[in-house]
């Protein structure tokens, strides 16, 4: 059935909506859909030709045939359009997830690097939020998109240098908060002195100083 593969792709997209990462790019499915579209396009071309021939003959007997033909053409074109819409929807969802991720200031995971993937922030605002991206799951064009979008964001943010646009979207309450260190890191310098990131130690620090570290999963607010 036409559109079956596209349906699979949409199901796959729907499944990944609430994931915190971008799943593997469905190269095969997309390739199959493109193939189907091109097949359908050839069908449509053929049917249009047929239609013209039938119209030239335009005898009583061919009228029904012409109607059947028109119907076929219509369904073919509809299927093509539907396939295209499914492809667009799939890609847009992935692009949106990449955009979401770009706001987080976290580096994408490069496979082959034996570093543990950064743990997902536990903040409730980040549920259903794309918090990790593995570069290997993206196709080439998407990697390019991610890179370019991050540049675009940077240039947009630079016009509001005083405001950290990718900061926390929860209303601020206290400027100083208690944090617990989740994993080892180096020394952190702040206006109020420095502290060392040693696992399971706790600090009382200014929130704006450690915002980035919380997003990157080094610290957790308690």
């Amino acid at each position: 059935m036409y559109g079956d593969i596209a349906n699979k792709l949409i199901l796959e997209a729907k499944r990944s909506v609430n994931l915190s990462e971008v799943p593997l790019y469905q190269t095969e499915l997309v390739k199959d859909i493109i193939k189907e579209i091109n097949d359908l396009n050839r069908d449509a071309d053929y049917l249009t030709e047929e239609q013209q021939l039938l119209q030239q003959e335009s005898q009583d007997g061919t009228e029904e045939e012409s109607k059947i033909n028109q119907c076929q053409l219509f369904v073919t074109i509809l299927s093509m359009r539907r396939n295209k819409r499914c492809l667009l929807a799939y890609e847009k969802l992935r692009a949106d997830k990449l955009v979401e991720f770009s706001w987080l200031n976290v580096d994408p995971i490069v496979e082959g690097n034996d570093k543990q993937p950064t743990s997902v922030p536990v903040d409730p605002i980040y549920t259903n939020y794309t918090t990790q991206v593995a570069l290997d799951n993206l196709n080439h064009a998407e990697q390019e998109f991610l890179k370019n979008y991050q540049e675009l964001l940077l240039s947009y943010k630079s016009s509001f240098s005083d405001v950290d646009l990718s900061g926390d979207l929860n209303p601020p309450t206290n400027i100083f908060i208690d944090v617990r260190v989740l994993k080892d890191g180096g020394e952190v310098q702040t206006e109020y002195g420095s502290f060392n990131l040693i696992k399971d130690s706790q600090f009382y620090v200014r929130k704006s100083d450690v915002e980035r570290l919380i997003q990157q999963g080094y610290l957790e607010e308690i």
Binding site: V30, I33, I34, I37, N38, N41, M80, R81, K84, L87, L88, E91, K92, A95, N139, H140, A141, E142, E144, F145, N148, Y149, L152
Partner: peptide, 23 residues
């Protein structure tokens, strides 16, 4: 404008360049 450009580029590279021009 830049965002639209990036998106179009992404779509084109991913599949639009391989489908018939009418689509």
């Amino acid at each position: 404008h830049k965002y639209a450009h990036l998106l179009t580029q992404l779509y084109n590279n991913c599949f639009l360049k391989k489908v018939p021009p009418s689509l």
